[in-house]
Simulated assay, not measured.
Amino acid sequence: MIFIRRAELSDAAQIQRVYASSNTYAGTLQLPYPSVEMWQERLRQVDANDLVLIAMYDGVIVGTGGLHVEKKIRRRHAASIGMGVADSFTGRGVGSALLVELLSLADNWLNLSRLELTVFCDNAAAVHLYGKFGFEIEGKHRGYALRNGVYVDAYAMARFHPHPPVVPESGL
């Protein structure tokens, strides 16, 4: 069973192992050979408006998901999502479990109406996963990032809140 909770500083070494997986860092903007110290620093510096979740299976961290609320006042209705799943756990529901929690927080607690992400165009599994949860392709970034010596394209995807909250009438 997959268990989701907020990341803690003591999780840095296990998160480092997730992102040391070659397909995991290749699917993100991470560099190969991440250090534990880098992850400790990232976890120390998480903004109060951001959330970093981890997915655990049998006591081992197998994935992470982040929800990063926009800082600009005119963009506070939006947040970006980033995720990574250990190579040995792809296709086992980890990404879905993380997305369920991230979307619940965005929709039910943070009053976010727009969620955004970028995903490499050749990551068919991730594009399918995001589509399953209501994300739509809004455009393509050509030559978005260098990966293995080649520039690769990425999709810009977004999802709007499916049932935006409504303020009840006062009845006065």
Rank of each mutant, 00 (worst) to 15 (best):
V150H: 05
D50I: 07
L31D: 15
F133Y: 15
E136G: 05
G66L: 08
E169C: 06
A158H: 03
A78D: 02
F89D: 00
G93F: 04
M56Q: 12
L105G: 06
V100R: 14
K132S: 10
P168D: 14
Q14A: 12
G93Q: 05
M157E: 00
H163W: 07
V127I: 11
Q14P: 02
A12K: 00
V46Q: 12
E8Q: 10
L9D: 10
S113C: 12
G139W: 01
M38Q: 08
R147D: 01
I81Q: 01
L117V: 12
I137Q: 08
E169T: 04
L117H: 13
D47M: 08
S10M: 09
A156K: 02
A78S: 15
T118M: 13
V166R: 14
Y19Q: 06
V62D: 02
M38L: 09
Y33N: 15
I15N: 01
A7M: 08
A124W: 05
R92N: 05
S35N: 07
G27M: 13
P168N: 08
I137W: 05
F3R: 05
V18C: 00
V60H: 14
I81P: 02
R114H: 11
E70Q: 10
S170D: 14
L117N: 04
N23Q: 09
I4A: 10
A106L: 11
L53K: 14
D50M: 05
A78E: 06
V18F: 01
Y151V: 10
L103S: 06
V127R: 03
R5V: 07
I81R: 00
S88Y: 14
V60K: 09
T118N: 11
E116T: 13
F160V: 10
G84I: 14
L172C: 10
A97N: 03
A154V: 06
I54H: 02
M157S: 01
K132E: 09
L110E: 14
F89M: 09
V119M: 10
L129K: 03
E138Q: 06
L67M: 09
R76M: 12
A145V: 09
A12N: 04
L115A: 07
L102Y: 12
V18H: 01
Y155I: 03
E169G: 15
L105I: 13
N148T: 00
D11T: 06
Y19I: 04
D58Y: 11
V167D: 05
L105F: 10
V69M: 15
